[in-house]
């Protein structure tokens, strides 16, 4: 029995760094050490990317895309290593049932925002390789006419309707 407790103690001791590991590990942090909520690329500001916790096959990703540049920027799609495919989808009510239909690219005019939000437009990632857990941060490669942009997607609660920092100025 003593050996069992010794082994258990050793296991806990060696595992403690793993248990204490920050779930944000590997993500961009700002000067205050917080995880970034804004990502920039040549006039494109991507604000508050987020999704909902799920154990299903699909996840919808939402964010604000702000075109601060002088030319239109087109949202082309996305790529993530934790999903088989990604596509832009638009919300539609068909016979009272909610559907997300695949869309081609969407242009964002200079000085305008494209808001990806629930029941409007979103990025749908299908074939998730793992369950998404609240508080988790996910890497996502956003594809636009400017090129690819690495962003960090915050996983909110399964019934969330917006990003936890929605309404904050960034």
């Amino acid at each position: 029995m003593t050996r069992f407790f010794l082994a258990l103690g050793a296991l806990l001791f060696t595992a403690s760094p793993l248990l204490a590991a920050d779930p944000d590990h590997g993500h961009d942090h700002n000067a205050d050490g917080e995880v970034s909520h804004v990502f920039e690329q040549a006039g494109l500001h991507v604000v508050h990317p987020w999704t909902r916790a799920t154990s299903g096959r699909d996840a919808l990703i939402f964010m604000d895309l702000e075109n601060e540049g002088d030319a239109p920027i087109t949202l082309l799609g996305a790529h993530a290593h934790w999903a088989e495919s990604a596509e832009i989808v638009g919300f539609a009510l068909e016979n009272g049932e909610e559907r997300y239909l695949p869309l081609p690219s969407i242009p964002v005019a200079p000085g305008h925002d494209l808001v990806l939000r629930p029941k409007e437009v979103a990025l749908r990632l299908s074939g998730l390789s793992e369950a998404l857990v609240k508080g988790q941060h996910l890497d996502l490669e956003l594809q636009t006419s400017l090129g690819e942009l690495e962003i960090d997607v915050m996983v909110e609660a399964a019934d969330a309707t917006n990003h936890g920092h929605a309404g904050h100025s960034h």
């Binding site: 638009g90 869309l103 969407i106 242009p107 005019a109 305008h112 925002d113 494209l114 808001v115």
Partner: peptide, 13 residues
């Protein structure tokens, strides 16, 4: 087209 609705919403919000 369906996609144009989102671009128009973006422009006229």
């Amino acid at each position: 087209a369906l996609w144009a609705n989102y671009a128009l919403k973006s422009e006229f919000s």
